[in-house]
Design a protein around this nucleic acid. Sequence first.
DNA 1: TTGCGTGCAAAGGTTTTGCATGGCA
DNA 2: TGCCATGCAAAACCTTTGCACGCAA
Lengths: 142, 142
Amino acid sequence: MKRDSGYNTKQKEKLLSYLVANRNKHTNVQEISAYLSSEGTPLGTATIYRQLDRLVENGVVRKYTFDGKTGACYQYIDESMECHEHFHLKCLGCGKLIHLDCGHLSEIRDHIAEQHSFIIDTSQTVFYGICADCSGKKRTED
Amino acid sequence: MKRDSGYNTKQKEKLLSYLVANRNKHTNVQEISAYLSSEGTPLGTATIYRQLDRLVENGVVRKYTFDGKTGACYQYIDESMECHEHFHLKCLGCGKLIHLDCGHLSEIRDHIAEQHSFIIDTSQTVFYGICADCSGKKRTED
DNA sequence: TTGCGTGCAAAGGTTTTGCATGGCA
DNA sequence: TGCCATGCAAAACCTTTGCACGCAA
């Protein structure tokens, strides 16, 4: 995996360091842009997209697209996460997106791959349902 | 499940009948618009989106978002597909929808319900990925 | 110096919203 | 008649592209 390519600039460094620092969660272009501005190294949206595209291509970052409207999400791929992609839960009640980092679930992929000859793309797959909070609320509303 | 609501118009009927006729594949706003125009009952994009939103809300149609750029896909939910007991696999290559009747997978629901306090709605949840056929094709293309 | 990175603006596409009009019940 | 559906246009939103300039190597 190419960790870098081309020239080094402050903006590129900052961008990557932000992704690394937030490797435990998804981030998006807006957040990145806001961060870089607050750090005194603003970066145009166009360039952010260009850099992210390269990082995705180089396998440094993973891109998720859950909802067309929300825009894409990006996440730095930690060493420990390369064999450990996680699924997502999306609550139909409040829209909350929950990251499911659970080893148990990698079995799901293996099972479906082996028994059903289907290779799951976790970056596109989302479990829809009701989260704990909304489960309580809904019952009171009904 | 509400199968309909509001007034009946030719456009609404045509729209739904197109979705029903193409229930075996996913379609999008462009296709729907083109079809309705060719049928002599053109419908503005805005209205198509409004109708689709309602259909999705009523559970008549399912909405898929693969990639922000491609735009959303829609698919009519057939009676036989209103299954709450099993999961679905959707191939990103050919759009095929596969029903997954597998006892092993009900464990997933239980696991997530118990360990992660999240109640999965299997009728809404779709695993995206690549099916066996497309997996083979892709390899030859590379 | 070379050519990549950046900024800015404009364009592209999809989806949403507002408002006036027309059609269903 | 009252209310909903529609048409049209404009806007919002995310993302990409083009071009000129600046900076890294």
